[in-house]
């Protein structure tokens, strides 16, 4: 049994201006101890999937239209709110994108870390405080600073605090939503190094949401490439980085990374923009930007084809003959 198994997940934001199809028919599988990278442009629906797993999609306007999210065999969507709260923060926890705004400004770091510990573990106040100090030391912040308020920390340290909160109850699954995007490159490296270390020490499975392919290469076992609310390619790290066959979007993504050995004046972006999620194309979502697109692509949305073991590509070009 997989740790996490998402089937046909569809999440829409229904606003007055129209329906935003943020996540469409997504299937994902995550085994214990694995790290899955979700890569894609801003607005591809990565964060929405994460919030969907946590059942924290803002409602209204967000609606989970369809699909199942099995966590250790239990469908999270059918759980009562009370049981879901036990899972949130305890067995699945999440690191949010922007450390600057993710901590409550009027509470000390101690209150914020002990809060999650006391919610999920039967510890006395003193024990919880001790545990909070340990967590802080674990992420590399001096335990003396536990009584400080978030505004007394730098951005990198705040992100460490957020990570400490997320890891405080030894979750089985950690969802990291662009944990390094808001940080500068040197701090990024420190945080990533720390996360790899913690992941190995605590044996946590992880979903890493990012648009940094370098981070993916460093941390992930499996990779899902997302485009306009769909997973267009899914496979192991080797499949995605070294494989022969790719979705045209993946090719474009990798093509956009400048090569150090070759002198380049201009970067090679993927032409065009992502389609408006309120008004997705009828056929393949990528077809307006795809150089291989033909008439068939404009009318029929492709299904995922397995091109190698566990390597799926959602493109008509890989349809098996007949």
């Amino acid at each position: 049994m997989s740790l996490l198994d998402i089937k046909n997940l569809t999440i829409h934001y229904e606003t007055d201006a129209g329906c935003v199809e943020a996540v469409n028919d997504v299937n994902l599988k995550l085994e214990k101890g694995e790290t899955l990278g979700l890569v894609g442009e801003t607005g591809a629906g990565k964060t929405t999937i994460a919030l969907g797993i946590m059942r924290l999609v803002p409602d209204p306007p967000g609606v989970i239209k369809n699909g199942e999210i099995f966590f250790e065999g239990k469908d999270l969507r059918t759980l009562r709110e009370k049981d879901m709260r036990k899972i949130r923060g305890g067995r699945i926890s999440m690191i949010f994108q922007d450390p600057m705004t993710s901590l409550n400004p009027v509470k000390t770091v101690e209150e914020q870390i002990t809060e999650v510990i006391r919610l999920h573990q039967k510890l006395s106040k003193a024990e919880a405080e001790r545990k909070a100090c340990e967590m802080l030391e674990l992420v590399g912040i001096n335990a003396e600073r536990i009584t400080d308020y978030p505004h007394q920390f730098s951005g990198g340290m705040k992100q460490r605090v957020v990570i400490a909160i997320a890891l405080a109850c030894n979750p089985e699954l950690l969802i990291a939503d662009e944990p390094t995007t808001a940080l500068d490159v040197t701090i990024q490296a420190q945080v990533i190094e720390m996360m790899i270390k913690l992941k190995n020490d605590l044996q946590t499975s992880m979903i890493l949401i990012t648009h940094d392919l370098g981070v993916v290469a460093e941390m992930c076992d499996k990779v899902g490439i997302m485009y306009a609310g769909e997973i267009v390619e899914y496979g192991t790290l080797e499949d995605i980085f070294d494989g022969e066959q790719h979705h045209p979007y993946t090719v474009g993504l990798f093509g956009a990374i400048p090569n150090l050995d070759v002198e380049t004046d201009r970067l090679t972006p993927i032409e065009g923009l992502m389609p408006d999620p309120m008004n997705l194309p009828e056929g393949c979502n990528f077809c307006p930007r795809c150089k291989y697109a033909d008439e068939h692509c404009k009318t029929a949305n492709p299904v995922s084809h397995e091109v190698g073991e566990g390597h799926f590509i959602k493109c008509h070009r890989f349809a098996k003959e007949g």
Binding site: M54, L56, R85, K86, I87, R88, G89, G90, S93, M94, F96, S102, L103, N104, E115, V116, L119, H120, V162, I165
Partner: peptide, 8 residues
């Protein structure tokens, strides 16, 4: 959202 994600 962080507070909710803690299971509060």
């Amino acid at each position: 959202r962080t507070a909710r994600a803690k299971g509060q």
